[in-house]
């Protein structure tokens, strides 16, 4: 459905993409996961024919992003990271505008957006600029869908959105997938990775890994322990100051210690922590999260 070969893009001295290749299958939710500045938006802009790559090629729905840009624009939906609807048009006017631009009507494709649009329909006379964040997001998604695209590009749709609304949003994506729409979605939230069929981890313009979330987790090779004690702040310092356990980070209510290349006994750490004066020590071997994997894979490239 989407195919990229060796995409490169620079803005002056700044390199945004350095050799990105991947394929997205029809009907897939493909997540592009990485921090701000990793190149996510640049990639989406190239694929939606808004900017040109310096090098490499890409096709969407079989159409070339350079030669066939007109065809691509007809069949993709794009929801940019920044709210880009007309603030001074009402909810209803925005939707009608986008339908008209694509030579269709709201009625013709109403079924597709019904679930999403109904939630904001009570406010259809309100200007888009006056909507809350959650409502803007739903309107933008409705407008991106109104011409029944085959591929949907969503650039950080959940950034700054609270956990409940994020969950809802992913529920909507699942329904769209069930209707056969291919979805490319970018996000800085690692916990959303597990909701995608396949993900690409991106950092500094490069894909670090492309696979299913499960395979990425399975490829994690280190030993990983969750460690707790009464004094979590001292615990982090004590772990860091020991060569064997220095690769450790706070993860919610515990610290994750990853140990490379060698088998260590939990007992060894426990004894060390007792010596440091910790009490209520809990150490458990755990399965990595996508975030653990990202941190491990990106280790050489992070600041």
């Amino acid at each position: 459905m989407v195919k990229c070969i060796d995409l490169h893009k620079s803005y002056g001295q700044t390199i945004a993409l350095q050799g990105v290749s991947f394929e997205v299958n029809a009907g897939e939710i493909f997540g592009i996961i990485g921090p701000d500045g990793a190149g996510k938006t640049t990639l989406f802009r190239i694929l939606t024919t808004l900017i040109l790559a310096n090098q490499g090629s890409a096709t969407v729905n079989g159409f070339d992003v350079v030669k066939d840009y007109r065809e691509i624009r007809k069949c993709v939906g794009y929801m940019p990271g920044r709210f880009s609807l007309y603030q001074d048009l009402t909810v209803e006017e925005n939707l009608e505008f986008f339908a008209t631009v694509f030579n269709t009507t709201v009625e013709e494709n109403y079924e597709l957006i019904k679930d999403i649009y109904q939630q904001i329909e009570p406010f259809k006379k309100r200007r888009a600029g006056k909507l809350s964040g959650g409502m803007k997001q739903k309107l933008a998604l409705s407008c991106a869908l109104i011409h029944k695209p085959t591929v949907l590009f969503l650039d950080e749709p959940t950034t700054g959105v609270d956990p409940v609304s994020r969950k809802e949003f992913w529920g909507m994506l699942k329904k769209l997938k069930a209707q056969g729409i291919t979805i490319l979605v970018s996000t800085p939230y690692m916990d959303e990775a597990s909701l995608c069929d396949r993900i690409a981890l991106i950092q500094k313009g490069k894909f670090l890994s492309i696979d299913t979330p499960l395979n990425i987790v399975n490829q994690y090779k280190n030993q990983l322990w969750a460690v707790r004690s009464m004094n979590m702040s001292k615990l982090l310092n004590d772990l860091r100051s020991n060569k064997s356990f220095e690769n450790c980070f706070a993860f919610g209510d515990s610290h994750h210690v990853s140990i490379e290349n060698k088998k260590l006994e939990i007992k060894t750490l426990e004894e060390y922590l007792l010596k440091c004066g910790h009490t209520d020590i809990e150490i458990t071997e755990i399965q990595p999260t996508i975030e653990d994997c990202f941190m491990e894979i990106s280790k050489d490239t992070t600041l």
Binding site: P35, D36, M190, S233, L236, F249, A250, M295, L303
Partner: peptide, 24 residues
């Protein structure tokens, strides 16, 4: 007010270590 949006996981954690230090 939402200080950590958008950064990579390691940077986000380093930021929280600064918060801890300030609190201490």
């Amino acid at each position: 007010d939402e200080p950590t949006g958008g950064v990579d996981p390691v940077t986000r954690r380093m930021f929280w270590e600064m918060i801890y230090k300030a609190a201490e």
